[in-house]
Design a protein around this nucleic acid. Structure first.
Lengths: 210, 210
DNA sequence: GTCTATAAACCGATAGAC
DNA sequence: GTCTATCGGTTTATAGAC
């Protein structure tokens, strides 16, 4: 009897994954909208269109649900970063990452990373898959930061950590919400303005007319 | 009979104000540490050293307590801004404001302004004293931003709102916490690094060795 | 005004039928 | 696996004695 490893997942497994992705999509929207502490499991269930108890068949707790959402977002970020055109310079790749993150933020589907002051932070730092993805992304960005400094496109006098943390923070910058709510700028303008002030500051004028 | 308007508050009133200030100090510390949603009224009472019911004799609700804390912080900010040395240029004044805010942040006594994703935001925007202070501060900073643009110290091509929002956001930047927790930098270094990246970006090197 | 004790509401998580 | 119904814990806010 030959055992054939199926190329595709079984129908059951596919359905299971599809359901979980739908849940995580809903969680992303709610996290982007209200943040972790204000998001309730009842809301998640309602948004997905299933009962709350069904939610707990897929995820152990609210913490693990949020951790899964964050982990998937990091996976997406890493995949995006790794598929950037090879001909880009290091600093252009870094700008592309920030640009991509702000774009996601503007669509209202970026799980707001609670940097501090949220009860989920401890859980996140104890969640193995999350840490693995975060370390991979940090390593990749760290390499680009180093390259950009060597190339003279980023200040070599600035500690790498400062640049890395700044890039992470700007990727979920509340200024995005301020400008979006103000209504005076298009999404494309907001992205350009924020990427510019992040890397070039506010003393240097933007390249084109904004 | 002559009615003499007392120069100083009555002892009762003084004591009342002293108590309220002690409460707001505790709220500031707790807001800085855990944020609004995770701060409980029990903790506030315990931190001050009074019973929870006594808290409600001074403030109507958790919302109004947080609003009072935020309003007092804005008052302090405005007072600081108005007492800056007159000989400073507009951009130097703006940098001083950010520098001051980050310094407060580092002492752990800055009530984290919940830009979005917090249940208090609506209450805050309906709280008259808060709005009044915010408008005064915005007007003052707006004038300085304009002056700095005319003087060529800030890019005139950058919309004033973008600069204003960026200054507000950098004043409670999570990067402060990242660097503080990293432990590799002194508080003074952190302030210098963040003020620099805020205004000059990451391409230009800092003036001195950091 | 300050306290203890408690009401009222909300939310995370689970039991048990289907 | 999905549902309805509910438990148990936490939190805001208040009642009532002193």
């Amino acid at each position: 009897m030959t055992v054939i490893t199926p190329k595709k997942m079984s129908f059951k497994a596919q359905q299971h994954k599809f359901r979980e992705d739908a849940i995580l999509d809903a969680v992303n929207r709610l996290l982007a909208q209200k943040g972790y502490d204000l998001m309730t499991m009842d809301e998640v269930a309602a948004e997905v269109g299933i009962a709350k108890a069904s939610l707990y068949k897929h995820f152990d707790s609210k913490d693990s649900l949020a951790a899964a959402s964050m982990t998937r977002f990091l996976e997406d970020s890493l995949a995006m970063a790794r598929h950037l055109p090879k001909h880009l310079s290091a600093v252009e790749k870094l700008k592309s990452v920030v640009r991509w993150a702000i774009t996601i933020h503007l669509t209202g589907t970026m799980p707001s990373l609670p940097s501090t002051r949220s009860s989920i932070q401890q859980t996140l730092l104890a969640h193995e898959p999350y840490l693995t993805q975060l370390e991979s992304l940090t390593e990749l960005l760290g390499q680009w930061i180093h390259d950009a400094q060597v190339a003279g496109d980023l200040s070599a006098a600035l500690p790498g950590e400062v640049i890395l943390y700044t890039i992470y923070a700007r990727s979920c910058d509340p200024v995005v919400d301020f400008l979006k709510n103000g209504g005076a700028f298009s999404d494309a303008d907001i992205v350009d303005l924020l990427v510019h002030t992040c890397f070039e500051g506010m003393t240097k004028p933007p390249p084109c007319e904004l």
